[in-house]
Write a protein that binds this DNA or RNA. Structure first.
Length: 287
DNA sequence: AAGAGGCCCTGATAGC
DNA sequence: TGCTATCAGGGCCTCT
């Protein structure tokens, strides 16, 4: 489900709402996620204060002041819900958790703070939570990851050199987190549209100029998506249940058989499965 | 080493 | 109405 922009949106709202707060109670209803939740998960995070919230690629990183913490990956269908305690009855002064947008099923993990609770929901359970002891252990988790598009290490020369002798198509490299971190199936198609590169083109056949376009539009598309609150295809995205808006800007994704949106192009958007993932592209202007 | 493909899982939707 | 098949924002693992 979520790619870098969506995860960034979630991170930003976590930063606003739970940073500096202390975990008071943890209840786990289902440990069987992509990787089984550690048996000491509750013990390791209880009574700890959320000191910093970061993001790398599609991962949210929550750190305590002792540099331990945990990582959240949302997989395909994971969502995080933040539910604040609101006063229901002003006479008795009683309060309760108000949660109109919370799904009824698959709320696997609940992390309670004093006046707010975080709920991890994930129907397909492709996501997971992972605790780390210190900075070193966290670093180790990401050793095999390529740079994010925003990283200073992600340059057109890096891209060009990486693609030397690579026989695979460009689309699957954009999805390959060892090459670049954070791009997923939607943005891979969108980026290639702006680059005017056919998703099936072999990486080794890309010119330096093609690589410059990939360098430029990877950043541009992701930044624009973040600005718009990410993309919401089927379910809501951010922690309050509001939708992102970037799906309104899709040029090719889920636009099969519709006209190409590049000015003057008479092309039609085609759908093709590349490495088992749907890919969308213009049959004329993407060469 | 690089690349292809299967697989983990539930739910929504399309077609009969 | 209810069945079956197909497809989803990801990425790990195995085999060649």
């Amino acid at each position: 489900m979520p790619e870098l922009p969506e995860v960034e949106i979630v991170k930003q709202s976590l930063n606003k709402k739970i940073r500096g707060k202390t975990i008071k109670k943890v209840s786990v209803k289902n440990r069987n996620l992509r990787f089984k939740l550690a048996s000491n998960f509750e013990k390791k995070i209880i009574n700890k204060k959320i000191d910093r919230i970061n993001r790398f690629s599609k991962y949210i990183i929550l750190k305590f002041d002792d540099n331990s913490g945990f990582v959240i990956h949302l997989g395909m269908s994971g969502t995080i819900h933040l539910i604040g305690k609101v006063k229901k009855n002003t006479i008795t002064n009683s309060s309760f958790y108000h949660s109109p947008n919370l799904p009824k099923k698959h709320n696997h993990i609940e992390i309670n703070f004093e006046k707010i609770k975080l709920i991890y929901n994930d129907p397909r359970r492709f996501g997971y939570l992972l605790i780390f002891k210190n900075e070193e252990e966290l670093k180790k988790k990401f050793t095999n990851f390529g740079p994010e598009p925003f990283s200073k290490n992600f340059t057109s020369i890096y891209i060009y050199n990486y693609f030397r002798n690579k026989k695979k198509n460009i689309k699957s490299f954009l999805l390959d987190q060892k090459f670049v971190s954070g791009i997923g199936n939607i943005y891979a198609s969108e980026i290639l549209f702006f680059c005017r590169i056919n998703p099936s083109k072999k990486a080794k056949n890309l010119s330096l100029n093609d690589c410059k376009k990939i360098f430029y539009f990877s950043k541009l598309v992701l930044k624009k998506a973040i600005k718009q609150g990410g993309s919401s295809i089927r379910d809501f995205k951010n922690t309050t249940g509001n939708q992102g808006k970037f799906q309104k800007n899709f040029k090719v994704y889920q636009r099969e058989n519709l006209n190409c949106l590049k000015g003057g192009c008479k092309g039609v958007i085609k759908k093709k499965f590349i490495s088992n993932r749907s890919s969308f592209f213009c049959n004329i202007c993407q060469k």
